[in-house]
Design a protein around this nucleic acid. Structure first.
Lengths: 326, 326
DNA sequence: CTGAAAGCGCTAACAC
DNA sequence: GTGTTAGCGCTTTCAG
């Protein structure tokens, strides 16, 4: 920066000003400085800038998994808004492991991010303490809680299970099963579904849980095979914790020539891009993940701007989309 | 850090040492320092550390899209290895836009990353210049080139098209079509396929291109509809630029009661987790994306270690997996 | 509108 | 083993 200044015949400070507050520099010097920057290929050191200004323009984002479309689409919306506002994302995968999450939080906090994005509302006590102690704005997404660390944006997972059960009963189904991945929020959806279905019909729900945290089409096919061949489940509705499972059930049903939704009805979760185009089209729970990510970004930006009416709990809701599969 | 030192009865520097080179501090002082750190909740400022040591432990990673499983699974492998070695990832989406990529590279370079991960081997001249000028190790993935910026790890995209065409001809198909997304690498696969197929059979290949950069099941269904209803393509093989398209073709074929591969044969690309479990199982091109990401991380680590035998072009190859769909 | 001085919180080099 | 000194490359006062 000093070199650039020398070339432009000004001091280092003026170069700094030309970069951060161009309006505070005379048009003429500004031009000379810009020429010098171009000539040297100078790229300001943001690390030093962050240290001096106590503003890093860095956001720490922690998600369970990059490859799960649920989180990546959320991140897409989030990072887009953040980028437009001059922030950069440091990203890490927690893998549904809260100890690992805590370690990652500590590492990220060392970079002095201006904000933190967390997935879910359950974090280790140590993580909570560090986050609160840091005084950095934190937004928790994909779930809601009465007592967020700072603020949270999401929807009620049990609420989706409730809605699915009520829909299923109203649609006339009297037998039900669930297919659920090893994911705490998915389990809460399952439990709410089962409880409500039982309440309304008096019938127990057959619950099938998978050890994997990631739902795949393969396991969806296996689940229907299991349901039909071993559990004698031949008519009723299946509430899946993910559209991937639901797609697997539809695939297996097609392979077996089963009628959907006549013999087996299927409800997915997520409304992924393929859900409207499966055969038959999938009935599922829609959550606008991109918008959720954008809302999370908005919440952080509000906090940065010290907006007084920033809310701390935002329920973005969900929607049950009825298509052909149930 | 000075406060912690005071609590432990040592100077600030000793605290720094205890953190970075614990072996260079006596066990007794080390313990006292650790106690003080715990008591204060001190988290070292990595920004300041990076500035002083000229080592940021930050890696800039640029991918076209977070939501495309191709890139996210690559990132998963990459970030895992990097994390294990103490590096943190700054991630951005370029959206297949090379101007945007250049802007992002400049922003990232400002953070003085220790390494850069780029997707693809085609970058704007300005981007190349900045990257080379920075002297920072760069690894380009998902493609190979004779003249990488620094090093590249990937496979030959035309090679996959060639292999698919040869497989198709050998399997007896004499008519062929392609379904391709608006992606430069996908187009190179398509062109190689079409050229080779023509060379071997004398028959032209019907090419269907989609404007969207992201392949979806929906467009795959639409493609088959178009092929069958408007192009009179009723027997032959379709080489898709993504498993998503291929899955759409299979879905539409099932919906229409077409025989696969008897009437319509389908070859996908990617071998995504569902490919082995579609109905019928999908013939596709497999690339081990997780391993590719890990190899990219390894290449960067080698460069950090100034390993002399680090190679600059690594072809990880691909594999044509024959299942039921072709 | 521009510059001089001080310092952000750490590491590196050198003494002791 | 531990402390002292001098920066890393910026931004932030405060003068002029």
């Amino acid at each position: 920066m000093a070199t650039v200044g020398r070339m432009a015949g000004v001091s280092q400070v003026t170069v700094s000003r030309a970069l951060s507050h161009p309006s505070k520099v005379s048009p003429d010097t500004l031009r000379r400085i810009q020429d010098a920057i171009r000539a040297t290929g100078f790229v300001p050191n943001a690390l030093a800038g962050a240290l001096a200004s106590r503003k890093s323009n860095l956001i720490a984002a922690l998600v369970p998994s990059f490859t799960n479309i649920v989180y990546s689409s959320l991140l897409h919306g989030f990072s887009e808004i953040m980028r437009e506002n001059g922030y950069q994302i440091m990203l890490s995968e927690t893998g549904h492991d809260s100890e690992r999450e805590q370690t990652l939080i500590e590492t990220h906090l060392g970079r002095r991010p201006d904000g933190v994005l967390l997935t879910g509302v359950h974090h280790s006590p140590g993580a909570r303490r560090m986050l609160i102690g840091s005084g950095i704005p934190v937004v928790e997404v994909w779930d809601i809680s009465e007592s967020p660390i700072d603020c949270c944006i999401g929807f009620s997972h049990p609420g989706t299970g409730l809605a699915a059960a009520e829909f299923a009963v109203e649609a006339g189904y009297r037998r039900a099963a669930t297919v659920t991945a090893a994911d705490a929020r998915a389990c809460r959806r399952r439990d709410a579904f089962a409880a409500r279905f039982r309440e309304l019909t008096g019938n127990d729900v057959l619950t099938m849980d998978y050890a994997a945290g990631t739902a795949t089409l393969q396991h969806g096919r296996a689940a229907l095979t299991d349901l039909v061949d071993h559990q004698g489940f031949m008519d009723g509705v299946v509430f899946c914790s993910s559209d991937q499972y639901a797609h697997g059930l539809l695939t297996e049903a097609a392979a077996r020539g089963l009628n959907v939704p006549g013999q087996i009805a299927v409800i997915g979760f997520g409304d992924q891009d393929f859900a409207a185009h499966t055969y038959p089209p999938m009935t599922t729970v829609r959550v606008d993940r991109g918008a959720l990510g954008e809302a999370a970004a908005g919440a952080l930006l509000q906090r940065f701007a010290k907006d007084q009416d920033a809310r701390s709990v935002i329920d973005v809701g969900f929607e049950l989309i009825r298509r052909g599969s149930a």
